[in-house]
Structure formats: C-alpha cells, structure tokens
Design a protein around this nucleic acid. Structure first.
Lengths: 102, 102
DNA sequence: TTTTTACTAAACCAAATGGTTATATATCAT
DNA sequence: ATGATATATAACCATTTGGTTTAGTAAAAA
C-alpha cells in the first residue's frame, strides 16, 4: 500500500464514503462498522487504515476495541477544490453548456 | 477500463484534476493539453476519456482536432457530498464561505 | 486459566489503473 | 497524390487496488 495518502483517492471508493457517512452520525467500533457492509472485517480494517492515513478518521484504542470517529476537516481540501469552480455552475452556465442546451 | 464512470474516481487522479484546472481557463485541443504534461499523448487521451465518461469534460470534434472543455456541473455531486459535512468543520466556515461567495 | 472477542498482519489473488510503444485513421497542407 | 498532423486504438506492462482466507495477538469473560 502507498505510503502517503491523498484525500481525493480516499474518497474515490464508495465503501469508504459510506463509512464516513456512518461515522458522521456516531463513533463506532471497527466491528460495528464492518457489520454494515457485505465484506470481511479485514477488508474494513484496510479501508479504515486508508481513511486514517489521510486524516479522515481518527481511531482511539479502548481496550481491545477501536473506536472510529470521522475527522471532517480533511474534507475541506475537497470542498475548496470543488468550490473554486463553483461560479461555473452557479450564476450562469458555462458557454459550452449554453450551446448544448440550445 | 470500467464501463460506468464515477466523478469521485475521476478526480482521484492528480493529472486529471490538473487537466480540469487547465480547461477551467480555456478550451484546449487534446494535444495542447498533452503538451502541459510529461507523458505521452495516448496517456492524456485515456485520461480525457475518463473525464468525458463522467461528464467532466466535453469534446467537440472540429476537423482532425478535438476541442476539450470542462463541464463543471458534474462537480456539483462532489461539492454537495463534501458540503453535507460542512458543519463539522464550521469553525473555519468563514474562509470557505468567502470562497463560495466570490 | 482457558476461551471468546476484537482486531491486526500476512499471504495471496483477480482485476483495475496508469503508463508505455507501435500502428491505424482521418484531415489538412503542399 | 503525397506527406504531415491530430488523434485513436491496440497490445503490452508494472503496480495498485480491493477483496479473500488464514493465522497471530491482546484484552475481556468465563
């Protein structure tokens, strides 16, 4: 697995986006997260590792359990990247879209 | 290559994000785009195909040239997905809001 | 102390990704 | 008609991805 994680690459996977969605509601243990998906616990463990490596999830060890919480500040990079192009779809359509919609 | 394209997966690659950045300034032919990167023309052709498949780029054939323009409405999905978690990092909301209101 | 439980780590695998080079094709210029 | 240009397509390749199963380990429960 790659050493340095990128948040854009982390959210590319739908399972990982779903994990973030779950953790937005509440902190969950790794196994509880895994219960929500149709895949093995080690698979979720791997996804969780990717999410922690880019700062989207923080894991707190509590006994034998791993309590996973989302850390949304890492999403700012994504939000800002998308937002820089916002004027292209907000006030007006870009010229090409205008052409296509005619 | 996968049949159905996902915008999250499309923007996961830094080269493709850079292409979007270029096309935000102006419409460019495929070769002109390729000139901006240290990779072959077929490589850019492939990236462009992924970008068109998820609606982020529209290509207009003009003679032997392919005029590529960004179509940013596909980014709304990304912006909205990130925005739903915005209140979690709202202490820095002012910065993002400034950006959005530009 | 023994056995569950919660998780990690390792070995493995098929498929996808991101690149290459070589070749084909259509259009434009001469 | 011939050659150059813009791009596509194909074949190929190494690496990454996303999953699996099978151990191992540490903590809790019995």
């Amino acid at each position: 697995m790659k050493a340095r994680r990128d948040v854009f690459q982390a959210i590319a996977d739908p399972t990982r986006r779903a994990i973030i969605g779950l953790l937005a509601k509440e902190t969950l243990t790794l196994n509880t997260v895994a219960d929500n998906f149709n895949m093995s616990q080690p698979a979720i463990s791997k996804h969780m590792r990717i999410l922690t490596e880019c700062g989207l999830v923080v894991i707190v060890k509590q006994g034998r359990e791993r309590h996973c919480s989302a850390s949304f500040s890492a999403l700012q990079e994504v939000a800002q990247w998308a937002a820089q192009y916002r004027h292209f779809w907000s006030n007006r359509l870009d010229t090409l879209e205008q052409l296509l919609n005619e």
